[in-house]
Every structure is written in structure tokens, then in C-alpha cells.
Amino acid sequence: MNNVLPINLGRQRIRKVVFAALVDVLALDEATLEESLKVVEDLDADSMSILALVIVIEDALSIEIDPAELHMSDATIGHVIDYISGQQEP
């Protein structure tokens, strides 16, 4: 696995993966999720569930993510999607 996505994916596809990970890991209803929500403050994610989110997203996208780079303590869902979308060859 790499820290660069193996194939270029559209933001919409990455958004779908991130939303699915949030639903799976935090047991949330997808209908309640919006990109403006903060992962820690609004979704009650703790340090272990953030790491679990990273595991699920890594597995779905065959990518390695440095959890520190996500700056989850203040990140919104949209920030996470943008960060991962940025890990693509130009």
C-alpha cells in the first residue's frame, strides 16, 4: 500500500467511502451526516474511533494515511475528504 491513491478517484467516490466509514465505525445514521460536521466535536469520535476510521478508509482505498495529517481534533468531514482527495497523482 502507498500513501498515494493507486488510481485517481473522484471526490464523490471518496466522500462515499468516508461517509460509509463514519456510519460503520461510529454507528451513525448516514442521513444525519453533513460535510460541515466536526468529527470530534459533533460526532463524539474519540482517539480510538479516529484510528478505527483510518483503518476502514485505508482498507477501502488501498492507501496509507498518517492519522496526524488529518488533524482530526478540529477537522470537519469535508476536511477529511479533501485531505484524502489530495493524495492523488496530479
Binding site: 465505525v25 461510529l26 454507528a27 480510538m48 474511533s49 484510528l51 478505527a52 476502514v56
Partner: peptide, 8 residues
């Protein structure tokens, strides 16, 4: 136990 627990 939730999905995050089973993963971590």
C-alpha cells in the same frame, strides 16, 4: 461493542 471496538 461497536465497529470501532472490533477494529481496535
Amino acid at each position: 461493542l461497536r465497529g470501532s471496538d472490533l477494529l481496535t
